[in-house]
Nucleic acid binder design. Structure first.
Lengths: 126, 126
DNA sequence: ACCGTCCTACTACGTGCGTAGTAGCATCAA
DNA sequence: TTGATGCTACTACGCACGTAGTAGGACGGT
């Protein structure tokens, strides 16, 4: 189940709010790139068709929506997608991030630290 | 100038061969996912329109094409695109790569090494 | 009971992309 | 020279997506 950039933005709002109506999603979007209400509505509907969100209840006459997939799984999906573009190898990705300054050596060390702890704690859970 | 997955695959062939005809590109693609000759041709034409490849010369009646953009710049573009999806922060990306096993701690160390050397050598060129 | 407001459901449209067919020119072998 | 083969240029089509309008139902205040 592939999500587009814009769909991911909507999902991000929902992941943050846990549950929201179309209007709430709409208002959570930065004014600068806020499309028409009905546009957001359409995307939410498509997300529903894709199974990425589900209706939870009705408040007044407004439907409430909640994510049906986790942020993590969606991110994983995006990452995998991109790795494929890079021929499946992850090192170039990190190297490129470093080179363009998006990532510092300090960042790397920090991540390393966290990772060492994570795997040590659970031995690589589940 | 945005390239799609398929377009990037074609570009990869061209980056590897330096220069190639449509037929050569075609034959360089894994048989499993090799579309019709004319499909490849269409993509190459679109790449030309986008300015990603350029005609170099004619051999027999076949045109030769060469990349007009570097692999690096294209990769950077893809990365930036993806970072935006992740809210601009690179750490989660790396963390996710680690967690899914696409990247090991050893990989990280190696990259760190290389990076340390790289920046030391040139003091962060240009 | 009625009107305005808000929401949903449906429809629509342009663009990009993956896919490929066809017409017609070029080239090469016989 | 002529026929086969290969290449280019053009055209086409369906789907996904971003974008949004419209019709009509629901609800709340007066």
């Amino acid at each position: 189940m592939k999500l587009t950039k814009f769909e991911l933005e909507i999902m991000t709002v929902l992941w943050n709010l846990e549950e929201a109506s179309v209007r709430e999603v709409c208002e959570a979007l930065a004014e600068r790139k806020r499309p028409a209400y009905t546009t957001v509505q359409t995307i939410v509907q498509r997300l529903e068709q894709k199974g990425a969100v589900k209706r939870t209840r009705k408040i007044g006459n407004a439907l409430m929506f909640a994510p049906a997939v986790t942020r993590k799984s969606a991110y994983r999906r995006v990452l995998d997608e991109m790795l494929e573009l890079f021929g499946g190898s992850a090192q170039p990705v990190v190297a490129q991030l470093l080179e363009s300054g998006k990532l510092t050596l300090a960042d790397l060390k920090a991540i390393e630290q966290a990772e060492t702890k994570r795997t040590a704690a659970k031995g690589g859970r589940k």
